Amino acid sequence: MKGHIRERSPGKWAIVLDVGEPDPITGKKKRKWHSFAGTKRQAQAECARLITEISSGAYVEPTKQTVGEFLREWMAFVRPTVTPKTHQRYAEICEKNLGPLIGDVALAKLKTDKIDAAFAKALTEGRRRAGGGLAPRTVHHMRRVLIKALGQAVTWDRLSKNPAAATTPPKVERTKMLAYDVAQTAELLEAFRPTRMFMPVMLAVMCGMRRGEILALRWKDVDFANGSISVRESAEQVGTEVRYKETKSGKTRNVAMSVTVLEELKRHRLAQAEEQLRIGLRPDEESFVVAQADGRPLKPVSLTHEWTRLLARTGLPRIRFHDLRHTHASQMLSAGVHPKVASERLGHSTIGITLDLYSHVMPGMQADAAAQVDAALQAAISASRKSK
């Protein structure tokens, strides 16, 4: 394998590579031409790199496809393999974040330094409307999506290696966990009792259920005899459409109900049946536990809007509806419930997720554990001394 460089104009070079044997009829050499901008030494280094790639079989034929064009192709490719919500998120990141930064760059010329520069720009001036930079967590998601997309480019032989894999990830600070204490939880339940949001709030703060799980819950999933709820599905909204899918962990889990939740659900079912019968509906086991007055299921976005509106009427700190799940978890662990039990109740795939998310509750538990061990040890020492 041979190659050489030719200067076309100051700082502009043509890299000429001889590939294969000369044509047996014409005697002309088969060549590949590459354009390069830089110094003569840099052009020579690039020529040597290309020769090495061709010799080792790692060479990828240059394409004029831009990063933006490739991302659109990739989005169409992954659509059947991901959930609609995930695809929507990918599309937002590719079109609104990555596209304006590197969409016009030729895919074959995309390098790690260009991607790092694009991420740095996003952190300082990435907001299109309000100005300022994007949150590090958003840039972190951009990086993950780009790594996934360019990994496919490598598989398709559009790139020899993934330039996004070597980029420097932004430092993402852990979001402070927000949760109500026991007194605030009691105040919350009393404030929401007269509203249609009472039962969703009760299921979130007393059972640790996710928003989508609450809205997918049907009466057939509530076992009054054994005092448990079977969490089988989750509601997911994309645009105005809602679909029901398997839970986040992919498994059905059983959540034990306290006496309070059990009695409130019985009261709620009776009130809901009376309300629907007045308009000619006959609820059955397939009916949704949380529903509109006409029996139709509530949409996730509608629940969030109603939560925000009603919470603003109270004097309680403003938190997300999802933070009610954190409230349940924190109160369980603070009360001494074993993390394994809490993990199963919350539907985490591993106990490590529970311990990582709620490590802020652990110091108090550790202090209690240390005190209990110390008390047991001191009692044993005292008993040993008395027996002598």
Rank of each mutant, 00 (worst) to 15 (best):
M1G: 12
H4N: 09
R6I: 06
S9L: 05
S9Y: 01
P10F: 02
W13I: 01
A14M: 13
A14N: 11
D18F: 05
D18Y: 05
P22G: 09
I25K: 11
G27T: 06
K29Q: 13
K30R: 15
T39W: 09
Q42W: 02
A45V: 04
A45L: 07
V67N: 06
E73S: 15
F77N: 06
V78C: 08
R79L: 08
T81H: 15
T83L: 11
Y90H: 11
E95C: 02
L98K: 03
L98D: 04
V105F: 12
L107V: 13
L110F: 09
I115W: 04
A117G: 02
L123C: 10
L123Y: 10
L123I: 09
G133A: 03
A135E: 12
R137G: 04
L146P: 08
I147K: 13
I147C: 15
Q152K: 13
W156H: 07
D157S: 15
K161G: 03
A166P: 01
V172I: 08
V172P: 02
K176W: 00
A179N: 09
Y180K: 04
A183Y: 02
A186Q: 10
L189Y: 10
A191V: 00
F192C: 08
T195F: 08
M199L: 14
R211D: 02
D221S: 08
G227E: 09
A235V: 01
V242A: 07
R243Y: 04
K245V: 14
G250A: 05
N254W: 04
A256S: 07
V259R: 12
E263I: 03
L265N: 07
K266Y: 02
R267T: 14
E274F: 03
E275T: 12
Q276R: 14
Q276F: 01
E285W: 08
S287A: 15
D294V: 02
R296S: 15
L298T: 10
P300C: 05
V301E: 14
T304G: 03
A312M: 02
T314I: 10
I319P: 06
H322F: 06
H322W: 04
R325M: 08
A329H: 07
S330K: 00
G336P: 01
S343P: 03
G347M: 00
I351H: 06
A367C: 00
Q372R: 15
Q378D: 12
Q378K: 12
A379D: 14
S382G: 06
K386D: 05
